[in-house]
Computed example of a mutant assay.
Amino acid sequence: MRRIDSAAEAVLRYRRPDPSCWETVVEAVCEGSPSWDASAALVQAGRAVAGQADRIAGSLAELLRFFVPTSGHTVQVHAFALAGLGDVRALPALRQLKAHALPFGRLHAHTLAALPAAELLPVARTMLGQVPVNYHASTFMLELLALWGPAAAPAVPEVVRILETPYAYDALRVLGRIGPAAAGTADRLAAYATGRDPRTGRNHPRRAAWAHWKVTGDPALALDVCGAAVTSGSGSHGLPFLADLGPLAAAHADTVRGLMESPGGWTRVAAAHAYWRITGDPEPAVPVLLAAVDPDWDGQPALPVQEAVLRLGEIGAPAAVAAPLLRGILAAEKRLGHPFAGRRILADGLYVRTLAEALARIDP
């Protein structure tokens, strides 16, 4: 067991562990003697266990022959390991797991997003259709549907139902990502955007107005609601949506530029991104974004480090000054110190991809 624990600790803590460590983790799980950390690592493994796919699939097939609810966690570990490889051999297990309230996290949605949307949509729709709504299943599945975007269109009826629950904010995002195929929800979105819906919360109007634009193609409501948020002192709540509107939000460019000097880090980063998207001028934005990239960041979500890296990458070549810093961060051996081992590899992997993709755009 000590060998298994040491191998699991290595893959959880380091980006480039010895390949034998991953082999030990896979062996432990497939042989039915994993530690908690080994299971947590394999769920998140992704391409790191590509060479072990057949072994994992074979072990999963054996588990499914005798599937009982108490084996749900072990089946989940195998299924997510295959899903992280985009391996459709995960699908039978995921379909069987649909009735179980598993502790999915939002980051794990990125794992399933690699699988064909059409194959998993029935599972998502079933989970979202549960009464009462299950918190973990709903937030996880809404994140997954948002990642799929237009491919999630068949689930619009279930997403609309979520508008009547405490998870409406996530549902608004999904409808916006689906786009024109969700045009039938335009009136509901307008009601949330204007506050006519009695369930409208403090943060709903901006996202609802943005979603209304995405499904209808008419930017008027989004410009009105998000523009008002930016000029009212709650700029950070409207800036991401004005950034998406781009040149359509030109009337707000001066206000947005002023927010680049905000005392709040997230507001400064959001304003820098929005200003660039609105005006096409990277010169004022790049220094603000670069200043937010802390090379010693440990994954603390209160800091907009990953967001700043993402936006520098979108700017591309004009952000070349950032390339040496990003390369240095990417070369680090230790993973981000996410507080939960069950999400550490996923969180760090997403950061690594963000860094690599930003560098590819900045300095091909």
Rank of each mutant, 00 (worst) to 15 (best):
T200K: 06
G72E: 12
L346D: 14
I4P: 02
H108D: 10
V77R: 02
V305D: 02
Q130L: 13
D254S: 14
A10S: 15
A302C: 02
S138M: 07
P324E: 04
V11P: 05
V123M: 07
A243R: 15
W148T: 11
R3E: 15
H73T: 09
L42E: 09
P295T: 04
I278H: 08
D87K: 05
T267K: 00
P339L: 02
K98Q: 15
A251S: 14
W36A: 15
P198S: 08
G51E: 11
F67W: 11
L82Y: 10
G328K: 12
W266M: 01
Y169F: 13
S71I: 00
W36K: 11
A272Y: 04
A322I: 07
S234R: 14
A323D: 09
G72K: 10
P103V: 13
A274F: 03
G280E: 03
A209H: 09
T185W: 02
A291W: 03
P154M: 04
W297M: 08
S20C: 01
T165R: 12
A101L: 06
L12V: 08
W22R: 09
H212Y: 13
T185L: 01
R177K: 14
L310R: 14
T126P: 00
G201I: 00
A341V: 03
P150L: 11
A302G: 15
T231F: 00
D37F: 02
G313E: 03
T185P: 01
G86A: 04
A271N: 05
A308C: 04
A40N: 13
A151K: 12
A319P: 04
P19D: 07
V269F: 01
T267A: 15
A209S: 05
P287V: 10
P324Y: 08
G176T: 09
A28V: 01
A101V: 13
C21L: 01
A28K: 02
R202T: 08
A181K: 11
P318L: 06
L189T: 07
R199H: 07
V174L: 10
T194D: 07
R335F: 07
P205L: 10
A208W: 07
V133Y: 06
V159Q: 05
G265F: 00
L42S: 06
E357P: 00
P240A: 08
V26H: 03
V309T: 02
L290T: 09
V269M: 01
V225G: 07
P122Y: 03
A347M: 11
G235A: 15
D254G: 08
P301T: 11
A220S: 14
S20E: 14
H237S: 13
L221D: 04
D37T: 06
P219D: 08
P364N: 02
A151E: 15
R353K: 12
G265Q: 12
Y351C: 10
R311D: 14
A8E: 04
L60G: 03
R202Y: 13
S236M: 05
P263M: 06
E357R: 14
A319E: 04
L94H: 11
R343I: 03
T70N: 03
V156T: 10
V293S: 06
W210I: 00
P287L: 09
E283S: 10
V26E: 05
S6Y: 01
L325V: 08
R343C: 09
G58Q: 04
T70K: 11
R2L: 13
Y192A: 11
L355Q: 07
E333N: 12
G349Y: 12
Y275V: 06
